[in-house]
């Protein structure tokens, strides 16, 4: 057998192992699917009822706040879902360390960690995607599906959820020794509050150009703006492609840093 064919067989076996790891993660997820969908429906329904109807009534009919919040909620569902994995993984590190089995499989450890992050991304994407029809049902005439650019929305779902997956992995990697509540209050909360969930980046810029410029380092801004540009129209939001590219850049940075930090932290080969 030539060196090339041996190498090809070797690469194929690594891919098979990675594929099976992904499949295993999906099997775990399948058991929680209904429960996670129920959680998501409750979350989306509450947000739409409060913002799309009650607060809409209070602020008047000038702006259609319902779809704006619906898209923000769908965009952030994946964020919250993958953040749940952070707690699970931290608990695992101080307990049974099931991660050691994953990291001893016949594949490079960076690939094993990447498969975990991608599987988190895919599971949260499934939940987020399925909330679009729920939102339409709740908002009905207030949410026009015909203005959605579906292929842009598809790209944004992929880019944002990949980012969520690797961002969560990065959080796992920085949390060693840190108090999770402190990280939540000092990192997650400001990111989310300034992440353009309740307002657009343009609105923020009208009030405080400095703050909106600083906020460009907040990846959630690109998630919210990208989703809204794809579903509510480009006008009033950041250019879609800037959001997509920025998210891919943040994903890459989180992946590289998380894998490097976890290698040191877990002392794996």
């Amino acid at each position: 057998m030539s060196v090339q064919s041996v190498q090809k067989k070797h690469n194929l076996s690594v891919l098979i192992t990675a594929g099976q790891l992904f499949r295993k993660e999906m099997s775990s997820f399948y058991k929680q699917l209904v429960s996670k969908l129920v959680d998501a429906v409750i979350n989306v329904s509450l947000m739409i009822i409060v913002f799309g109807y009650f607060i809409q009534q209070q602020i008047g009919s000038g702006n259609n706040f319902g779809p704006f919040i619906l898209i923000g909620t769908i965009a952030s569902l994946g964020f919250w879902d993958t953040l749940g994995k952070v707690g699970d993984m931290i608990t695992d590190f101080s307990g049974p360390r099931t991660i050691t089995y994953t990291l001893s499989l016949p594949m490079p450890s960076w690939l094993a960690l990447s498969v975990l992050a991608v599987s988190w991304a895919v599971t949260s994407l499934v939940i987020s995607c399925s909330m679009l029809p729920v939102g339409k049902l709740l908002l009905y005439n207030k949410f026009d599906l015909s203005i959605i650019s579906y292929w842009r929305l598809g790209i944004m779902f992929i880019c944002s959820h990949l980012f969520f997956g690797f961002f969560s992995l990065w959080l796992v990697s920085i949390l060693k020794g840190a108090n999770i509540t402190t990280v939540w209050l000092r990192v997650i909360n400001p990111l989310y509050t300034f992440g353009c969930f309740w307002y657009s980046w343009k609105t923020m810029g009208q009030i405080s150009p400095v703050l909106s410029s600083i906020n460009l380092i907040n990846p959630l801004v690109y998630v919210m703006e990208g989703f809204r540009a794809a579903t509510l129209g480009q006008e009033g939001y950041m250019p879609f492609w800037i959001c997509a590219v920025a998210l891919l850049g943040f994903t890459f940075l989180c992946a590289v840093d998380a894998i490097s930090r976890l290698r040191k932290q877990l002392d794996f080969v």
């Binding site: 076996s13 690594v14 295993k24 099997s27 058991k31 099931t98 001893s104 499989l105 016949p106």
Partner: peptide, 28 residues
């Protein structure tokens, strides 16, 4: 990778996957 293919490591503390059943775990 080749070495890990011939290796079976059973740690002192069970590092079992808690999200899948016994037979699924063996399958994977």
């Amino acid at each position: 990778i080749e070495y890990r293919r011939i290796l079976g490591f059973c740690p002192q503390i069970p590092n079992l996957d808690l999200g899948i059943t016994v037979q699924q775990s063996l399958l994977f």
